[in-house]
Nucleic acid binder design. Sequence first.
RNA 1: UGCCCGAUGGUGUAAUGGUAGCACGGCGGAUUCUGAUUCCGUCUGUCAAGGUUCGAGUCCUUGUCGGGCAGCCA
Length: 566
Amino acid sequence: MSSPEESSSSHFIRTIIAEDVQAGKHDGKVITRFPPEPNGYLHIGNAKAFCINFGMAEEFGGPCHLRFDDTNPVKEEQEFIDAIKEDIGWMGFVWGQHEYYASDYFEQLYQWAVQLIKDGKAYVDDLSAEEIREYRGTLTQPGKNSPFRDRGMEENLDLFKRMRDGEFPDGAHVLRAKIDMASGNMNMRDPVMYRILHQTHPRTGDAWCIYPTYDFTHGQSDSLEGITHSLCSLEFEDHRPLYDWFIAQLGIFPSRQYEFARLNITYTTLSKRYLRQLVEGGHVSGWDDPRLPTLRGMRRRGYTPQSIRIFIERVGVAKRENVIEVSLLEHCLREDLNKRAPRVMAVLRPLRVVLINYPEDKEEELEGINNPEDPSAGTRNVPFSRVLYIERDDFREEAPRKFFRLAPGREVRLRYGYFITCVEVVKDESSGEVIELRCTYDPETRGGSSPDGRKVKGTIHWVSAQHALEAEARLYDRLFISESPEKTEPGKNFTDNLNPDSLEIVSCQVEPSLAEAAPGSIYQFERLGYFCVDSVDSEKDKLVFNRAVPLRDSWKKIERQASRKK
RNA sequence: UGCCCGAUGGUGUAAUGGUAGCACGGCGGAUUCUGAUUCCGUCUGUCAAGGUUCGAGUCCUUGUCGGGCAGCCA
């Protein structure tokens, strides 16, 4: 599955892998992995990481392992394991039997730790967490050796065994690698390999009360699985020397780690911590709130796996810090949906229109095209009658010349219907609000063209009042008003950058063919945008639509420019 | 005054010593029964200074700017 886009340009990771394969390294085999920690829901930033890992494997004909990095039972839950699998599967990636857990390697890891102790390369430290921090030194000053650093091998072995046996409370001891307390790389200043945690683990239960740290787990897990290219994000760059050190000391399969810059997108946050705050602070409805960049949120909003995948491809892979404009994400969604989403008519803010020369009880069926981009999608019938709803935005009492829609005395085409001309504007006497338009229709223009060849510039969408279904539409906008919501002035919180209008709920009128719309299905509401039937709140007799993304609107642009000139 | 990484248009990303290209975005136009889509045109770029070279975005040196690192998190 490689598109021209994929093969026409490369990125540094693809180049490295291609060269390795070319050179016959590991017999030309490529095995990658995605190692999520099951402590939260996946977002589009995580998707970049697994798209790269699964993508490279797919491209070079090898497997990509899904491995849960479950070394910290304090934070991890089964619920997240299930959710992560669901999201990756939804994105279209397959790991088959290659589902692993770091916890499956606990015994092996323990044996390796014992080996390092025997080799004089690890020791049990009695220092407290605070003391260890003090001894570690600072970024500019070297650390100093723990007084327990040179304790005898037998004593280390005994202590480590007793740590495992549960003789000590949390924090009493840790096992540390003996490397270099003066290293410029903080990770090499005798990193902790094991800590005591009397905590039930989602998978190993109470079998263990000591747990290996990420650093003592990750590289060896890669090695055990024969991972050839371990592709992760930049924050692990400083850990690579340690990753390599453990593998070298143990003399095991030499997996190699390569790092790339993580994804950032304007007007949102991809920080797990901030996302959690949004959910727990009630700023959004939950982890699947359609305004969130979580995969569940995006799925509910109407994003397709294909659109996210192509987005990740276009964003590229490099090492420099980057912030992608949301407009690219939105572009990718529109591009995908334009090809596939069935068109339908819906009126978000209804204005009543009465066709005064159309017979009272007449009804007819007009033929609508389901998808002009896809003839195989066929046609459908749309009911038409004397009383209609049109979009309030499609009428102006005082219309500028470039306004191609309805106005007193002006003629427009009703999509798939007739030409109509506005002859009277009915207003509410007290408020002055326009409440109804009285129009004439031209019977000769059925289907949208006139025998006399006269042209109308505008075509507007509509629904028949008596046939329409009332539904709820949730109009989403960007969650933050600030391009970089995480950047705040002193004393301000990122939640101060929240967009108060990120959700507008309207009661709309939709064409009756939508009665059978399935949850999760996505439609284009003509001239408005792409809408997804909400998978949580939508019901058969009370449909709820989420606006995934509006259509591009060059009229809005023209108006904005006009008002700017004034 | 530590270690590591990075720097190409507004935003991303290519170019592996030989014409700085692509996408998004902006602007302008054509087509259109969606002011959508599509199509065409156009706009803006190699952090700085030295050096190597016939030739440097690419190699070297120095500097500047940006990012990461002091969890018993991952």
